[in-house]
Computed example of a mutant assay.
Amino acid sequence: MGKRRREEGDGGNGPSGSRRSEEAPTIGQQTSHIKNKMVRGAKYAKLKHEKNKAKKKERAQRAAEVARAEELGLEPPPKPVPKTIENTREKDETMVQPDDAEVAADEDQDEFAEHFKRVRPPNVLITTSYKVTGVAYRFISELLEVLPCATYYKRQGYPLKKIVEYARARDFTDLMVFNEDRKQINGLLLVHLPDGPTARFRLSNLVLSDDIKGHARATSHRPELVLNNFDTRLGHRVGRMFASLFHQDPTFKGRRVVTFHNQRDFIFFRHHRYIFEEKQVKEKGKKEKATAVKARLQEIGPRFTLRLQSMQKGTFDSKGGEFEWLAKPDQDTSKRKFQL
């Protein structure tokens, strides 16, 4: 009985009690030292109930403060920001600030500078692996609608180095090679011409337009481009590589937008058509409805996810190429550290 009483105690003098004041341990950490399963379960349930009760009290208090602020015509108190993997991201030395003059100077002279200075308009060559099925042809036909400046050539057994030479000689600015395995598109090799770099991506979660419910049809207008969350030096480089595939002067009348959204080093590709329309919206505290302009999206497709595997200097070279960045298993040890 004496042992049980000690276990039922709060453990203020034990290791968990000493941590509580420093780290605010979780309920599991507070009860993990209790060996008796029934006592541990009862203690866990009690602490969980107290925690939920405290949360409910805080929510009611915040709601009362918001109501009082609205009644007095004051600004409501700020909402608490929940902790996520994104906003608790580990600091990276290569994060780029908007006013970084050094980065701007480097990018003004990099391999993509001619594209952003409108000296070389995009001219993209698309091809595949040696053996492909109908899935690849359907995907490429939809991709040609996304990239009006792209041209498809059948592989016909040529090695990649020969294709790079062919594309360079015919003034193509970029080469996209999609790999298929077991009737699934699983990789993308993106080569910027004439001098690189070369990026290799893993491609997954491909959904073609016909498999998207209520999808729209693409038009021949040049799409707008949106790049989200490419914040590091490597991320800037990848973002500029994607931007070099699209014209700098989109056709806004077409209302098409292509998005590359980076989240936790996964790059989500989406293709939408948008429209602005006026709606009557009821505002809080007012009886009359106000007119508000809202955007409505309709997905065109396709959609897929990319994951960077390597960034190589120069054009494709499987043996003697020098890598700027290469994915390694130990890079995934921390869930809050990202490369892009």
Rank of each mutant, 00 (worst) to 15 (best):
D330V: 15
D106K: 12
Q61R: 09
G320L: 03
R307Y: 12
D92G: 02
L308E: 01
G2C: 03
K37R: 00
A295N: 09
G11H: 09
E322G: 08
Y137T: 12
Y137C: 13
Q280R: 08
S220P: 01
L193P: 07
T26D: 10
G2Q: 09
V66G: 12
A136M: 11
R200T: 15
V39A: 03
F178R: 10
S310Y: 03
L308N: 01
V293S: 14
K46T: 12
D110M: 06
G134H: 01
G41H: 02
E277V: 08
E93L: 04
G73R: 00
R233I: 04
S220R: 04
V226L: 15
V124Q: 07
I34Q: 02
R40W: 06
D171S: 15
A101M: 06
E288M: 03
A67Q: 11
Y158L: 11
D92L: 05
V177T: 08
S129M: 04
P77G: 00
L175R: 09
K46G: 02
K48V: 02
I212K: 05
M1L: 14
D92H: 05
G254F: 10
Y137H: 11
R5D: 10
I140T: 08
G9I: 04
I34K: 00
A113D: 03
K282N: 01
K294P: 06
V257G: 10
P194I: 08
E299Q: 09
P302N: 03
P194G: 07
L144Y: 00
I185M: 04
D330K: 07
E114T: 05
R6H: 13
K91M: 06
K337Q: 12
N52E: 15
K328Y: 07
V135T: 03
M241K: 00
S209L: 04
K282M: 04
K83R: 09
D317G: 13
K319W: 11
D181T: 15
R19G: 08
D211Q: 14
A169P: 05
R270E: 10
F323E: 13
E224Y: 14
V238H: 01
L306D: 10
F316I: 14
V124D: 04
L208V: 08
R40Y: 08
Q109F: 02
L340A: 01
L208P: 00
T151K: 11
K337V: 03
T128P: 04
A199G: 00
N262K: 02
E65L: 12
V293D: 10
V207N: 02
P98Y: 04
P77Y: 03
E111R: 15
H261P: 01
K43V: 00
V281D: 00
G9A: 14
L225V: 10
F246M: 03
Q97E: 12
R4Q: 12
K51P: 02
G196N: 07
K328S: 12
E50V: 02
A113F: 06
P80K: 01
L147F: 04
L234M: 01
E86A: 11
R89A: 15
S204F: 06
E277L: 14
E145M: 07
Y137L: 15
T94L: 01
D99L: 09
F260C: 09
R89N: 08
K286F: 08
H33P: 01
G28M: 05
E7I: 04
K35T: 07
I185R: 05
